[in-house]
Design a protein around this nucleic acid. Structure first.
Lengths: 151, 151
DNA sequence: CTTGACTCTAACGTCGATGTGAGGCTTTAG
DNA sequence: CTAAAGCCTCACATCGACGTTAGAGTCAAG
């Protein structure tokens, strides 16, 4: 398919698709006249790119991951030393990501209790005279303290 | 505490702290002479801000979420109608956050399979200095297909 | 009082990701 | 064949999240 169709099917703008190619994340073939031709599998690929970029993963990591997805194990270097370094780099990103996820989960859970609480109050017998400090009652336990720091 | 101390304690640059204030994510009081004065709780607050921003959450979302995460329930309105609207707003933030977390998890899982695969090859028959990489060798099959698209 | 560390505002620079034309081919529908 | 639609390559513009610098005020210590 050509770029317009891929754009329509993925929701990514034409500009973005060309940008991803520029970054080595997509490698469409070209027609005689220069038109980009994409594979069916590129629909998935674009979804992954967007997902990983939205996770604020460094584009180098995204690139490596994508190369791996596309070329399978071919993208893994032969030299043990290179592999070790690569593994370490990826592991660091993995740890960071895991940490980030945990922290976000904690924020989300806290937010969820607040939402539940607001909803809970809505259904109750409204007390118009209740001053803004409705904080006193209710069972919102102190949310866990320090969350993991991001870099 | 003043901005320098908060910076030291959070790892965020002074510039970042001022920027977060500009975005309404922090609201320090000021001394007579204009110096920003932060609360102890702002240390946690900055940690959350950094985490959420590093996850590429739109600052609008971060702002909304933060107001309720850290100012707690102080801002909950009395009027049932107001509460209902608030609950709805928060629910949307909550959904966005949940979606984001799922997207991050998907990226992390993908990254994990790649790391495992790279390590699997690195680990020779007794490789010194290599922490237990008891990963079954090549077992990486096509990871799940389409993952959730980010906005 | 003077110095030096700290802070302030204001403004310009940067970088990644993306939008937006300009100008010019190519393909497709009529 | 011709016009519309799609695509191409620059290349400059924008936006968020900062970094950096400049010029000036504040404050504790010597």
């Amino acid at each position: 398919m050509r770029i317009g169709e891929l754009s329509a099917r993925t929701g990514a703008s034409v500009r973005m698709l060309r940008y991803y190619e520029e970054q080595g994340l997509l490698t469409p073939v070209r027609t005689e006249s220069g038109y980009r031709i994409y594979q069916e599998s590129d629909v998935d690929r674009v979804a992954r790119i967007r997902c990983m970029l939205s996770a604020a993963l460094p584009s180098g990591v995204v690139g490596q991951a994508l190369r791996f997805l596309l070329d399978g194990r071919a993208a893994i270097p032969d030299e043990p030393a290179d592999r070790a370094r690569l593994a370490e780099t990826l592991q660091r990103e993995l740890d960071l990501l895991t940490e980030k996820i945990e922290s976000l989960r904690s924020s989300r859970d806290l937010l969820a209790t607040i939402v539940a609480d607001v909803r809970g109050d809505v259904v109750g017998p409204g007390h118009p005279g209740d001053p803004g400090g409705a904080v006193a009652r209710r069972s919102v336990r102190k949310a866990g303290p320090a969350v993991g720091l991001a870099r």
